[in-house]
Design a protein around this nucleic acid. Structure first.
Lengths: 216, 216, 216, 216
DNA sequence: GATGAATGAGTCTTCATTCAT
DNA sequence: GATGAATGAAGACTCATTCAT
């Protein structure tokens, strides 16, 4: 347990530095100075610098994966938009809470470790696949217009990534407005026009999709 | 060899290697081996490795900037969607033609030089500003629904970046379908629902926005 | 090994090599080979080659400065010539003991770093100023003939430097004769002729100035 | 002849730069830029950088050697002090006229070329030998007190070198006063005290040795 | 467990010299 | 003769990792 506490402490310090300076500009000297441990001690807890970095990256990826839930369909389930909103909320909350970690993920430039690059690409591909699946589901449910869901999924993913980057750069604390903007933009981008028109006709004000997409 | 030719030759080889291995894993030895020049020759044309890299980066940024034209409004101008389509086409064509350069920009450019990082962020901010301006214009013209155009602009930018990344990874040669998907998604995301409905009512099949946005 | 001991060890070896080969022909490889340490170890103790060299130079300058005492006048003080003799003795002893360091100062110190050049010129200027002050004092005390003490001071300084160079080249171990020769030459060069005549009349053999310059 | 003119031109430029920056800080690029010749052209006239430097050094050494005449004794010869004065005058005039060349000689730090170092040491040794010979001659002639003429010769040489360095640093144009100061200091340092007393008794003002050292 | 001195492979950069045109 | 592009040996410095204490 003591061991884990020490590890966590080093990880915490390293996270800061990696977020601020990036992988290459950060050296072991920086980390041990911050963490106030000896050079050798570092290697008692981590195989090497890359190992530590990977662990941090793993952390974000894992936590984000945990916070992004697969869309569930069923009578007892909340309506899909609500689920999307919840996903976005969870993701953006995490960004706010762990800005440094998400910075590492977003700004990490590829090309210093093939394996790591693949791991991250994998993560994004998984997210894109989830989005694609939601879109396909939406099409089946007659909510989403037909399109190349593969491409659109990546567009949505990219939009969210960029919005996160903006959020991370800003000092904003409130994410709800941001969530609604992203949601609105994305949903309208994929929704069947009839639906949008119906919403409009009902005098719905923007970002109130939920009300008509499911009775609950 | 003539000065400019030699410079270009070195740039060409370096581009390849940087795209494949990234900045840090590429060393001067790699470059000169590829370009079949001596070590000293390299420094005859470039101050140092970073200098060469920056030049490549500058190249992409400049060319992309050149290919993204500001939306023009006026009776003699092509309709806005046509202009957007043309922009996207020019950008994606460049990506296809200079896959390596765009790879460098998208994947390998951040994290090793503060100054460079800023230059690139600057570029993206400029693009986002252009998109925002187009949205604001669209709102004025009653084509675009009201929204936080700042946020939406970044969402669109991110979507395009991600789509470009996909394109760059794929071996695809035809960009027109991709352009239409991106355009469709983006336009629907921001268009006023009435418009979409009108289009729909007219039996328009996806990506034929142009027909109603202008008389031509 | 203990930090200071290791530093000293490297300095010791470097001193030898610098004295023999000079700054430019000595490379870090030479030093670490001699000191039997790894390349990195060198940089653990010194910022760079120049840093080490400067430290050695600083050493000579500091020690020589320490050994050259300002002339004191007063009833309880030893007579001035005795003080000059003591200064010379201390300086030449150091040269004998640290032949390599003085070699570095005399032969290898100028021309590779503007800043360093100035530091050394400064040192010599300080010594010249001390000599000039002694001469001015001697004039006040009616021991020294009037002259351009500024110029004469540099002549004396130059004479001593050259004598030191000779000493350093030779394998001589006894400095007392050398000291007397320098002293004799210098004192006669500046003394008021009446004094010299008085000494001569008293049948004084060379280098016995002291006997008449004070009662002791 | 054209060839020689070109050579001379390059030498002239190189002299300047070597004087200002020293051998190591001066590189071939500096020289050819100044002389406005191509890189290759440099090597048409000089074997290499060292060769050019040596030639300049040779120039000073040769000219100084030419200007330092051996003391002649004889009824038809000018008195010795006059000859010494003439030597000093010729040397210092040259310093004034070719400050850059003498700077090179004086500041040339040893240790980058064994052969060159020896050549310079040789020159100084030759001068010291000349001085020693003059002293020995003076002893024979009962003008100079007995002493270790070897040591004293180097003291005198050093004094002159240092005085020259001062002259070179200053912007002074008049050397006669300087010559007298050096001469006075040196002569008094070596003269037999009886002589000095005689001079004094005769009411001679400083630096008028000449009047009594020979009847002519 | 903890320490921090030691390691040395890996890179970048300079610059005197050559040589094809 | 003149040019200047090309050369590559030489050398400085960094930093992740190891290991004796």
């Amino acid at each position: 347990m003591e061991r884990n506490a020490r590890r966590a402490q080093v990880l915490r310090h390293a996270k800061r530095i990696f977020a601020r300076k990036g992988y290459h500009r950060t050296n072991v000297a920086d980390i041990i100075a911050r963490a106030r441990i000896a050079r050798g001690t570092f290697y008692l807890y981590f195989q090497n610098k890359k190992d530590l970095f990977e662990e941090l990256l793993e952390q974000v990826v894992t936590e984000l994966t945990r916070r992004i839930e697969r869309l569930r369909v069923g009578p007892a389930e909340p309506d899909p938009v609500q689920q999307l909103r919840a996903n976005l909320n969870r993701v953006l909350s995490y960004v706010l809470a762990e800005r440094e970690l998400t910075d590492i993920l977003l700004n990490h430039s590829t090309g210093f470790d093939r394996e790591l690059d693949e791991k991250i690409q994998d993560f994004y591909d998984r997210i894109a696949a989830l989005i694609k699946r939601s879109l396909d589901l939406g099409i089946e449910m007659n909510l989403v217009r037909s399109s190349d869901t593969q491409v659109v999924a990546y567009c949505i993913l990219g939009g969210i990534k960029e919005a996160i980057a903006v959020l991370s750069r800003s000092r904003q604390k409130d994410i709800s407005a941001l969530v609604e903007q992203i949601l609105d933009f994305g949903l309208r981008g994929v929704a069947r026009p009839e639906l949008l028109e119906a919403v409009r006709a009902m005098g719905d004000t923007s970002s109130k999709f939920a009300s008509f997409l499911g009775p609950n």
